[in-house]
């Protein structure tokens, strides 16, 4: 039983670490602010949830797991709000998103609100 839990922890923490690294990579690699926000969102959502899940496997049905759950709920409530706050601030300040992608082909996706 313990072995299964340990394996579960290993797998979830490894997946979490992988997504964290991808987040860091994305933060460096993406071309403009709005795309980088998406990269940052990965650390906030899946990585947090899955790492906390992996840790909770180790502590079992205790108050520690409840606290981990609180952390996840709190992050899930605040992180999109903070992300919105950031995107909104940039948008209001007039920072335009690059819609042509990453030096990609210039065919534009269908947008209703495209302004350039």
């Amino acid at each position: 039983m313990d072995l299964i839990l340990d394996i579960g922890t290993w797998i979830s923490l490894l997946i979490g670490s992988f997504f964290l690294l991808v987040t860091g990579f994305g933060l460096l690699r993406f071309p403009d602010l709005y795309t980088r926000i998406h990269a940052g969102g990965m650390a906030d959502t899946l990585a947090t949830a899955i790492i906390c899940f992996g840790l909770a496997l180790q502590s079992g049905f205790t108050l520690i797991s409840v606290k981990l759950l609180f952390v996840v709920i709190f992050v899930f409530l605040t992180s999109p709000t903070a992300t919105y706050a950031l995107a909104q601030a940039a948008f209001v300040a007039g920072l335009k998103p690059r819609l042509d992608g990453f030096e990609g082909p210039s065919e534009k996706p269908a947008t209703n609100n495209d302004d350039d």
Partner: peptide, 23 residues
């Protein structure tokens, strides 16, 4: 006190921020 810079984007930022408000 919204800044005019947002206007040339075709859409002004919403004057009240509902999301932070409710959360």
């Amino acid at each position: 006190g919204l800044k005019p810079a947002a206007k040339d984007h075709g859409q002004v930022g919403s004057p009240h921020d509902l999301i932070p408000h409710v959360v």
